[in-house]
């Protein structure tokens, strides 16, 4: 099964007039893929499209060659951990997994064994006899994860799976995703916090307002964002002229514009990290006094900034 891809061909989804995602083209290989974007950017919509819970308004989707319209085939290979925090009433963790596996057409013995394995992998064996209704948020998250992996799928779709997990459980979940990916699975994880998933992802898809704004390996995405969309940084400081002539010599700085009131400037840079370093240097040397520093509110960049973080910013 591995080697297949999850393919979006020009996919759009509208909820009535509301845009879910627009003109998405993706081809996702095996390994861990992170869908990252702020709330409302379309992560859940993409996942629901992969699993046929919603249908595309336009375009085509194929999951390892299977159409999401064909649940009988699709869910033999796909497991989905949704963002819904609801469960069939009155069931224990064990019953929840077991009855789902019976629905898959598994025999009693098979269902039993697969249930035990999934409980083991998610650390839920001890709580299996208790009712899901009495679980903590973290346990509910883990039993949902167990539900998604219990039939041993080759594509795992996980909507914000780290939400509600304590650091310990988080580390265990991440280790589980890694080992599943190492077995050749597609593991698709969504998050609104990039640094939560960037170090474990083989590739990332950045989403904003329903559009894929960047995709690829994390390093490539970072530099692509910088090349295609220089970041505008607004600096309010004393002696902006001195700062301007300092930063203008840096080759990642594309443009510098002085503020009319003579108390600040606007700089465009392809490498914010280095820009912030230069700024710090200028402060340390006593060249300028800084009042405030902020990325200008460019739409794509505010997302980028929000997602990729401000690790260069020392102020």
């Amino acid at each position: 099964m591995s080697g297949g891809r999850i393919v979006f061909e020009d996919v759009s989804k509208f909820y009535g007039d509301v845009l879910g995602v627009n003109r998405v083209n993706l081809s996702i290989p095996p390994g861990i893929t992170a869908l990252v974007g702020p709330n409302g950017s379309g992560k859940t919509t993409l996942m629901n499209l992969i699993t046929g819970l919603v249908r595309p308004t336009r375009g085509r989707i194929s999951v390892l060659g299977i159409s999401p319209d064909d649940p009988e085939r699709l869910f033999k290979v796909v497991g989905y951990c949704t963002q819904f925090d609801s469960f069939p009433r009155g069931k224990t963790g064990y019953e929840f997994l077991y009855s789902s596996l019976r629905l898959h057409g598994k025999s009693h013995a098979e269902a039993r064994e697969l249930t035990m394995t999934a409980l083991e992998l998610t650390g839920m064996t001890d709580a299996a006899g208790r009712r899901v209704a009495a679980y903590s948020k973290g346990m509910r998250q883990r039993i949902k994860l167990a539900h998604a992996i219990c039939h041993q799928p080759s594509v795992l779709v996980l909507d914000e799976p780290l939400n509600g997990l304590d650091p310990m459980a988080r580390a265990e979940a991440i280790a589980l995703f890694r080992s599943l990916a190492a077995e050749g699975l597609h593991v698709i994880i969504s998050s609104h916090i990039l640094h939560e998933v960037d170090c474990i992802s083989d590739q990332v898809v950045l989403l904003n307002s329903g559009y894929v704004v960047a995709e690829g390996q994390i390093q490539a995405v970072r530099s692509e964002m910088n090349q295609e969309h220089p970041l505008q940084i607004m600096v309010r400081c004393s002696r902006p002229g001195a700062l301007a002539s300092r930063v203008f010599t840096l080759d990642h700085v594309v443009e510098v514009r002085m503020h009319a009131d003579g108390r600040g400037l606007l700089a465009s840079t392809r490498n914010p990290d280095l820009f912030y370093q230069a700024l710090n240097q200028a402060v340390l040397e006593g060249l300028i006094d800084i009042e405030s520093v902020a990325p200008a509110d460019d739409d794509v960049h505010s997302v980028y900034q929000y997602l990729i973080g401000n690790e260069g910013e020392a102020l």
């Binding site: 699993t51 046929g52 819970l53 649940p71 009988e72 085939r73 699709l74 869910f75 033999k76 497991g79 989905y80 949704t82 819904f84 609801s86 469960f87 069939p88 009433r89 789902s100 629905l103 898959h104 057409g105 539900h147």
Partner: peptide
């Protein structure tokens, strides 16, 4: 209403079945 219909839709079961 219970928000649990998706569990059925996520099983390898035809909607007709």
């Amino acid at each position: 209403v219970e928000k649990t219909l998706h569990y059925y839709f996520l099983a390898p079961v035809r909607r007709e079945v």
